[in-house]
Amino acid sequence: MKETNGLEEHIVSDWMQRLAEQTQPPSNLSTPSLILFKAGLIEKRRRAERAIMPIIWMQIATLTLFAIAALWLLLSDRSPLAVLFRETLSSLMSVVPFIVFGAIAAAMICVAFAFVLRRE
């Protein structure tokens, strides 16, 4: 049994060596300088993306603050427009559960689609 294994190993090893000899890389294989150049570009892009992240967060924060301030002003105001807005908002309160449920269902459908597309 051991002898058979040894012979088999020898045959396979010999065959693998021949296969390796016949596997020659193309002459136009990428150069190290090209790889380094690409790596440099990717790193630069990554740094640029990292650098603009605080600006994006600041924009989001500013917009959120602005929206809150505008809402607060509108709710505390006594002008006809503010009254109309408040009434619209209070009438919408009855359908809030449906809106929330619809948003959750839409999000779940989107996630399921993304999952299926990713698998494919």
Partner: peptide, 22 residues
């Protein structure tokens, strides 16, 4: 840009690229 000396990378690449490709 990634912290490895070019010469070191060149050396590693030249030694490994062909066997790795195969």
């Amino acid at each position: 840009a990634l912290g490895m000396e070019d010469s070191t990378f060149n050396e590693i690449y030249n030694e490994t690229a062909h066997p790795l490709w195969r």
